[in-house]
Amino acid sequence: MSVDQYRATFRGCPINASRHEPESIKATLQRLADATGDDEQIDNYGSGELIESFEREVAALLGKEAAIFMPSGTMAQPMALRIWADLARTDYVALHATNHVALHEHNSYQVLWQLKGCELGESHRVPLLDDLKAAARDPLAAVLLELPMREIGGQLPPWDELVRQSGWARAQGIKLHMDGARLWQCPAAYGKSLADIAALFDSVYVSFYKDLGGIAGAMLVGDADFIARAKVWQRRVGGTLYALYPYVIAAREGLARHLQALPERRQQARWLAEQLNQLPGVSTWPKIPHTNMFRMRIRCQPEAFLVKGERWMQQHNIALIPPPYRTDDDALHCEINVGDAFDFLEKDEWATWIQQFGKDMADTLSA
């Protein structure tokens, strides 16, 4: 049994604890067409009311002067760091050990964008103010902070700590950039608005497909001068596609459809983690999720778990445990991100299935 086989079965389950409701391509495109006004026109090389009005909407939502829509975060994030480096006349930026641009983008910020990284804090925890100070041994142009931090289970720094970090960076003339791929999850955790959170940062990147169900696409948000510089860089790196309207419409519709539900998704994630932690061999990270995502470690016989787990999904058409992102000799490591598919069942129904899963899989789990 391969992880790929398990993943295919997981994705095919109509009832799923860790994603949005599955939808066919045809249904998706029809829904997006229905969300488009009869008089709306396609954008052209990043210009036009469709894309520009959405940029204004997101900029206002985050309390910033301007925004620019881009095809991907892989393009947007290092671009922001490059802009701050040029203005500061230093190529050094500080990033946490689990930052996305190094871990999942093959160090593109160094190879393509000629930036130099200073490691920030320790990989198993959120960075603290002392970590920022230690990283500033070299003159820093910017510090990149991820909210929430995916690789450590969606954890967030305490609000007061984040405020201290922001104040210190600004006092030092160091720009603070947010990897806000999942920023949409944060207001419920902090009890703050998106604008309150973004106000602590000089630039913000957001994604439109992770929590909002878009096709693809990202946005950089900041002051007018920062965005003007980003527009030049976007042209340089080929990000000004002939038309981006499918991504823009999907992002706009996803924002309207999913943003208001995220506080409830957080509560569902916290409840789900509590239930899963009662199963033998299962522990979530963190134990009580900060947002609507978390990671978990399952002590088990990995091969036997994958084989039996796939059969269980096929039998019941319910997916509880996502495919692992890492497999050890005696454990699987998985990530859960609660979406609207969770609403297929009531909590008592989920609880019944979780208990049944634990009983049926008992011989593969390690207490």
Rank of each mutant, 00 (worst) to 15 (best):
S2H: 03
S2L: 00
R7Q: 01
A8Q: 00
G12C: 00
N16H: 01
A17S: 05
S18D: 02
H20C: 03
E21K: 08
S24R: 07
K26T: 13
T28A: 07
Q41C: 04
Y45A: 10
Y45K: 05
E49F: 07
E55F: 12
E57I: 12
V58Q: 15
L62D: 11
G73H: 07
R82I: 02
R82W: 08
A85G: 03
D86A: 09
D91G: 07
N99R: 02
V101S: 14
E105M: 08
G121E: 11
R125S: 10
V126A: 11
K133N: 06
A135P: 14
V143P: 08
E151Y: 09
I152H: 13
I152F: 08
G153A: 09
D160G: 05
E161Y: 04
E161C: 10
L162Q: 10
L162I: 09
W168R: 01
L176E: 05
C186Q: 03
S193T: 15
D196C: 10
Y205T: 13
F208I: 09
Y209V: 02
K210A: 06
G213N: 04
A224N: 05
L241G: 10
H258Q: 13
L259E: 10
A261M: 06
R265E: 09
R270D: 01
P302I: 12
L306R: 03
I318S: 01
A331G: 11
W350L: 02
A351C: 03
Q356I: 05
A367G: 15
